[in-house]
Amino acid sequence: MTPFVELDRVSLRYGGDGGTLALDQTSLSLEQGEFAAVVGPSGCGKSSLMKLVTGLLPPTQGNIIVAGREVGGPLKIVGMAFQNPTMLPWRTTLRNVMLPLEIVQPHRSRLRQERAAYEARAKDLLRTVGLNGFEQKHPWMLSGGMQQRANLCRSLIHEPELLMLDEPFGALDAFTREELWQVMQDLWIERKFTCILVTHDLREAAFLADTIFVMSARPGRIIATHRVDLPRPRSLDDTYRPEFVSLVHAIRDQISQVRSEARAAEAGAPPVAKVA
């Protein structure tokens, strides 16, 4: 089976030849319907990776293939959600969620005639994330966790083949975060979209993902890939099981090692052997 998302030795340099190298020879591949997480120390180019895959930024070197085609510009099949929910304050929650339908074809041209059907669809989605009754509220009347739920709905309403999540739960309190992990898992099990989650929460990565890619400090490279073979649906209790805990520990060790190497390199110490 050919991979759905494939990065082949992709490098990204900001600001011309002398600029910062954000990503260095990164390769990874994802099957269709796979849930991948990318973890790494801060500033390792995780968000750059997202922009590359969605075509928002062109790579300096290497090839990116999504859905069998080389990425040459912004993709149109993507849903995105960021740490900042970026709900539009002048729209109600329902109309915020329906925003992608006003952009993406074929919904865009159908929206006017089939408004009721689309609204029902958006309301259904809001219900699955526990936001029924809040459709007509403006986002600033909602708590941060509720806004993030609405944000997830907005990223999924047009049924994208690829969902990109950039630390979507990063700004939430621990309880809300874990609740949304489950919401996310349920949505994924139901719809089986391909998903790339960028996070620095290792438990989150291990809970949600099939595959975890560990990145090195800047310039970012994939230094390890972990399969998470825990059965689905996973529960929060699973996160306390020994195999889960030892997986999280293994990744944490790798990341703290690359962080200390990065610090040593910055301090001008002789280079240490890289982790394979």
Binding site: K51, T54, L56, L75, A81, F82, L88, I103, V104
Partner: peptide, 27 residues
């Protein structure tokens, strides 16, 4: 306009005019 929401719309294939009408002007 927050760059994130612009990214969200661009990754949906929104044109510059779309972004202006849906986000820029109301904002």
């Amino acid at each position: 306009v927050e760059p994130e929401i612009e990214d969200v719309l661009r990754s949906l294939g929104a044109s510059k005019l779309d972004i202006l009408m849906k986000i820029g002007l109301p904002r």
